[in-house]
Design a protein around this nucleic acid. Sequence first.
DNA 1: ATGGTTAATGTAAACGGTTGCATAAACAAT
DNA 2: ATTGTTTATGCAACCGTTTACATTAACCAT
Lengths: 324, 324
Amino acid sequence: MATIKDIAKQAGVTPSTVSRVLNNTGGYNDKTKAKIEAIAKSLHYQKNEAASNLVAKTSNLIGVIITDSKTSFAAPIIDSVEDTAYTNGVRILLAHCGLNNPKRLRFCLDLMAGQKVNGIISVAVQFDDDSLDYLNFTKLPLISLNVTVPHHTSVTIDDVRAAYDGTSFLIDHGYQKTALVAVDRNDPQTGSKRITGYQNAIQDAGLPLASSNIVEGDFSFEAGLKAAEKLLTGDHRPDAIFAASDDAAAGVLSYAYEHNIKVPAELAVLGFDDSHVAKIVTPALTTVKQPFSEMGRMAVEKIMAHSTTKNIMVPYQIMERQSV
Amino acid sequence: MATIKDIAKQAGVTPSTVSRVLNNTGGYNDKTKAKIEAIAKSLHYQKNEAASNLVAKTSNLIGVIITDSKTSFAAPIIDSVEDTAYTNGVRILLAHCGLNNPKRLRFCLDLMAGQKVNGIISVAVQFDDDSLDYLNFTKLPLISLNVTVPHHTSVTIDDVRAAYDGTSFLIDHGYQKTALVAVDRNDPQTGSKRITGYQNAIQDAGLPLASSNIVEGDFSFEAGLKAAEKLLTGDHRPDAIFAASDDAAAGVLSYAYEHNIKVPAELAVLGFDDSHVAKIVTPALTTVKQPFSEMGRMAVEKIMAHSTTKNIMVPYQIMERQSV
DNA sequence: ATGGTTAATGTAAACGGTTGCATAAACAAT
DNA sequence: ATTGTTTATGCAACCGTTTACATTAACCAT
């Protein structure tokens, strides 16, 4: 591969001049510029980023840490992160940290630090104390999407209010026996907040609160399926199920389909996220939309701007389709 | 950030010794090794990859080029690529090239060349002549998944036979009036191959071929929906629809649901890919599974091994669920 | 004691770009 | 003609690691 030295030799100038031309830093004759650019092109010159990064002490790389790519909302976020990065001239270093795997998260952070990334975007990643300490030590800016991280910037929706509004939406549509499904009570970020919002809405509507109406689980399809089974075989059948994710809602839909329960006539199903699956299941899911693309875009822009805002709340929105 | 020089100074040795210890290249006293490692830890030393890459003329980076992350089968591939990369000590540089966007693809390749990646994995990316020339010039090894690229390694299924077997599967289950949906006749890689396989199966079964039974389209949900509309409103209703993707199959399912057509009683639907959606739609999709995880893993391993095998065919498999 | 090995470490030159400072040439202003 | 200013380019150091080669010390065998 050709280097600036090769170009310099051919052009009869020094590497510094070539560097100046190629970086458009000014201070050279138009004719030399043209000559150098022509030679660079003819040699298919490609800058060695490692060398450049070494002196610049940066990399034009943004680290993206996600638990895994299958997480349904990872795709739209990564899409918008990539697009925004592209228009900003930075690139994406992707790493998976798994679920509750401190060792691997630590590895990811090590990797990002070694690559001297401009910043890190984490998607739905919970930081343990050790990783957080290390992150603070590296001084790398972090933008956390979906969950908050102490002393770092986060972009989230207001989960309490979103759950409140979702529940109210069901109540306003005449459903009185609602259930909340596939939430984790021990998750301080999402689960407990949504439970709070859900309960508040029920109380504010003057409806009875029954703890049996909350079925815990992760955000998966299977969690929705199991929860539906539990709820719909019992005596106190709910007439509406609010799932913590679209995947879980699809699980509910699937159970209803198997058991010939008509949605939304006999049972309303409200999803959460507005991920890809919301549009393609039958009936299409009414769901609480999280603005993932927006969040990804903001994250990149915050990093580029060295913004130090702490917690950013973005608006959610109820997407009405056919399941309520 | 601490450098090996800082460590060397504290340990009373030269940077070379530190480098040797940290890289386990041998040739040092156990006591100095212990001392250096202790100091490195206390300083939270983190190797500057740029410097290291500069002399090594490589980056331990694998470039992954995909059209976009929303593509349903990108997720499982990226998951397995990331996992395999993790266990092999390499990292992932991710770039999107969009759909039929030569300029952006060229940009991606530039980026990969600049970063001196060990190799490139492309997922369902069509290379135009210009990009291909450039790729060849860079000498970067490419592993193309899902489609073949002239003179480069590819990992694909046998699309002709997969379509043949899928169609035969429908015929064997008693469906005589099949249709193929959401394929692109002008796509030499997937579309035309699957059309060939489909037609061969029909002819071999002694059934009549009607060109109206092939409805073109991209692989999207909407394509499936539209195709279903076209096929199911006409007089010659098919009794089975073979979609080119699970998303398209979901579109068919959705149309059937809307119009009260029972699946699989009145209409069989066969998907393609076995992506995430296949399991969560109702009824769950019977589909032709592509071994995406396997393909991702192989791609990384091929790059690490500097393998030069050309075209690798991996086995597909019909996953029987409820839609046929 | 002498020479030969071996092990541990040092020396210095790379890797490819960037950049502050110096220099030279060209030009303008007195 | 002299001085000052601007423009274009060169010089050389530096970024942090790696590594071939040189050096030193220690040990062993004669």
